Computed example of a mutant assay.
Amino acid sequence: MNDFHWTKLFNPEFYITMEVGGVPIGIYMVLFIVFAETGLFAGFFLPGDSLLFLSGIYSRELVETFFIIPSDLSNVTVLALLIAAAATLGNIFGYWFGSKSGQFLYDKQDSFWFKKKYLYESQAFFEKHGGIAIIFARFLPIVRTFVPIIAGIVHMPKGKFMFYNVLSSILWSFLLVFAGHYLYGFFLSEFDIDLKKHIEKIIIILILITSFPLVMKAIKSRKKTAKVEETEE
């Protein structure tokens, strides 16, 4: 930890390979970050999709913290289920927070940990897509942090929320964890390429892919605003 730099906080591999006193705690960090990013409004800056993808690559090391599973499929399945459970609990907490005291966020001042614009963007996203927004939001950075809070604020029926919550958690965790795990094996066996040696490139690619929808939405929003201003003139 002597060579620690704050920029490592944005690197998912830092959490996955973390040790305390020589004891690996990567699995605990992964589960906590998944919970925080989907349940705590201050968790929007944490790595999400890239964390799950890399967790798939390091699946055996992570799961062996708890127990050793000989079967490769069982190993990665257990990891995906654990992450899905953490994501489900995170959304439940976000929903509860929104239903009880989320309204105060609209009056809260911006800070490093909180940007009100993200709240309004997530609200517009939720209003446009309804319950299915919870599934879409899982694959969108920042939005996935605020959508369950919005669902709580508008008092979305609990049964309906839980259906989309569990479904989205399973889809998100299994798709990304399995993709990371089996793409790692594929590149290693077919091209002799160890993806663990190209983590930075993988993170950059995943950030670009997951951020693309948000960038396009921002561009369209600016164009729409510009047209309105031109019309008013």
Results as ranks from 00 to 15, higher is better:
residue 2 N to L: 12
residue 3 D to V: 12
residue 4 F to T: 09
residue 7 T to C: 13
residue 7 T to Q: 15
residue 9 L to G: 15
residue 10 F to L: 15
residue 11 N to S: 11
residue 12 P to G: 12
residue 12 P to C: 13
residue 15 Y to L: 08
residue 15 Y to C: 12
residue 16 I to G: 15
residue 22 G to M: 12
residue 23 V to M: 13
residue 24 P to G: 11
residue 27 I to F: 04
residue 28 Y to E: 06
residue 28 Y to D: 04
residue 33 I to K: 01
residue 34 V to G: 00
residue 38 T to K: 05
residue 38 T to L: 05
residue 43 G to I: 08
residue 45 F to T: 08
residue 48 G to N: 04
residue 49 D to P: 02
residue 52 L to S: 03
residue 53 F to C: 01
residue 55 S to G: 05
residue 55 S to W: 02
residue 58 Y to S: 01
residue 60 R to V: 09
residue 65 T to Y: 04
residue 67 F to R: 03
residue 67 F to I: 14
residue 68 I to F: 07
residue 69 I to E: 00
residue 70 P to I: 07
residue 70 P to G: 07
residue 72 D to N: 08
residue 75 N to R: 10
residue 76 V to M: 01
residue 80 A to Q: 06
residue 83 I to A: 14
residue 87 A to N: 08
residue 89 L to N: 07
residue 94 G to N: 11
residue 97 F to G: 11
residue 97 F to R: 09
residue 98 G to Y: 05
residue 100 K to L: 14
residue 101 S to H: 13
residue 104 F to C: 07
residue 105 L to G: 07
residue 109 Q to F: 11
residue 109 Q to I: 15
residue 110 D to C: 10
residue 110 D to R: 11
residue 112 F to T: 06
residue 113 W to H: 09
residue 114 F to D: 10
residue 116 K to W: 06
residue 117 K to H: 10
residue 118 Y to V: 05
residue 119 L to K: 09
residue 121 E to R: 15
residue 124 A to K: 11
residue 124 A to C: 08
residue 124 A to T: 09
residue 125 F to C: 12
residue 127 E to K: 12
residue 129 H to S: 11
residue 129 H to K: 13
residue 130 G to Y: 06
residue 131 G to C: 02
residue 133 A to E: 02
residue 135 I to K: 01
residue 135 I to N: 08
residue 136 F to C: 05
residue 139 F to V: 07
residue 140 L to P: 01
residue 141 P to R: 03
residue 141 P to T: 05
residue 145 T to H: 01
residue 148 P to E: 01
residue 149 I to S: 00
residue 150 I to A: 08
residue 155 H to P: 03
residue 161 F to S: 01
residue 162 M to Y: 10
residue 162 M to A: 06
residue 163 F to I: 10
residue 165 N to C: 10
residue 165 N to V: 02
residue 168 S to P: 01
residue 169 S to I: 02
residue 171 L to C: 04
residue 171 L to R: 00
residue 172 W to H: 05
residue 173 S to L: 09
residue 173 S to A: 15
residue 175 L to E: 00
residue 179 A to F: 11
residue 183 L to T: 04
residue 184 Y to S: 13
residue 184 Y to M: 06
residue 185 G to W: 09
residue 185 G to T: 05
residue 188 L to S: 10
residue 189 S to E: 13
residue 190 E to A: 15
residue 190 E to S: 15
residue 190 E to R: 14
residue 192 D to W: 09
residue 193 I to P: 07
residue 194 D to S: 10
residue 205 I to H: 04
residue 206 L to Q: 03
residue 208 L to E: 06
residue 208 L to Q: 06
residue 210 T to N: 08
residue 214 L to T: 11
residue 214 L to V: 10
residue 214 L to D: 04
residue 215 V to D: 02
residue 219 I to L: 15
residue 223 K to M: 13
residue 224 K to A: 14
residue 225 T to W: 14
residue 226 A to P: 04
residue 230 E to N: 09
residue 230 E to A: 13
residue 231 T to I: 15
